[in-house]
Design a protein around this nucleic acid. Structure first.
Lengths: 151, 151
DNA sequence: CTTATTGCAAACGTTTTGCACGTTT
DNA sequence: AAACGTGCAAAACGTTTGCAATAAG
């Protein structure tokens, strides 16, 4: 599942979004977006914090800003998150096609899939219950191909 | 989705399980199981704690025991849980047919459903990825029938 | 110069842990 | 008696918040 939108494009949209809401364009906000865009994968807020600290050691940055910015980006549908209960959330760049996840309990790897049958069926179920679906979570949990081999 | 197994049966199995693992049969463990069995629905550990305090005011009980016992019961597949991220988990009696959940973001109500198409499709996806599925999570999130009416 | 944003540290809510004491076997 | 379970309080965990200092518009 690859990202097709260019970073310039993403950044432009982000700036527009900020302006529209009287929010300010700060170095921290840009870097958080950039790190998530550049590193495809799924990251905890702490991961993102560490990545920025490593790659941009001179930038002042607090973990609170990561949380605040991720909330902002998620509300704007620029990133999306996958929850791991008490263990927190992982974030990924969200301007891709919608997809669900396969989560490996051995190595923590997350694979992505999209399945039209499931999507359609979810809508059908919501309809049947007169339920107005705003979102859904579908995770297949188990042991990935590679970890099965290791044994 | 109704429970068909009698409490006596459940308790018997629980006792057996404890014995097999050199664990002890305590009042607290029995009450936690009983409360979950008796009150159909989805409960936080705190809910369960309060229910027991109300119904059995004389029993000594700490919240830590609730957590420890719920872990035990979940590992034994006697209860199952549904996660709400930072807001914790809710537990329900788990010896029912497998099912997934519709979660209302307004009132917090949880409805249950079972859909064979989705179940089958999940297996097919796992197979396609050479993924050994041990579990899955499927939540439809939105606004329930009743809460839609209220507006 | 006004307003929003930041880092920091403290607070939060849920969950886990260490430990001395109690209970079950 | 031995082993396991308990309550309690403290710690841990990810996350959020209040606030004074700072940066953006």
């Amino acid at each position: 599942m690859t990202t097709t939108i260019s970073y310039d494009n993403v950044l432009e949209n982000f700036k527009k979004l900020l302006k529209q809401n009287n929010l300010k364009y700060t170095t921290q906000r840009e870097l958080i977006l950039k790190i998530i865009y550049d590193n495809s994968g799924h990251f905890t807020p702490e991961d993102i914090y560490n990545l920025i600290k490593e790659n941009y050691p001179d930038i002042k940055l607090g973990i609170a800003t990561i949380y605040r910015t991720l909330t902002l980006l998620e509300d704007a549908n620029i990133v999306s998150s996958i929850s791991f209960g008490t263990q927190g959330k992982k974030y990924e760049f969200g301007l891709k096609e919608h997809h669900d996840h396969l989560v490996c309990i051995e190595c923590g790897k997350i694979e992505e899939f999209f399945d039209n049958t499931i999507e359609k069926q979810q809508e059908a179920i919501a309809k049947k219950f007169n339920f107005k679906m705003t979102n859904h979570v579908m995770k297949i949990i188990g042991i990935c191909k590679d970890c099965q081999k290791k044994k």
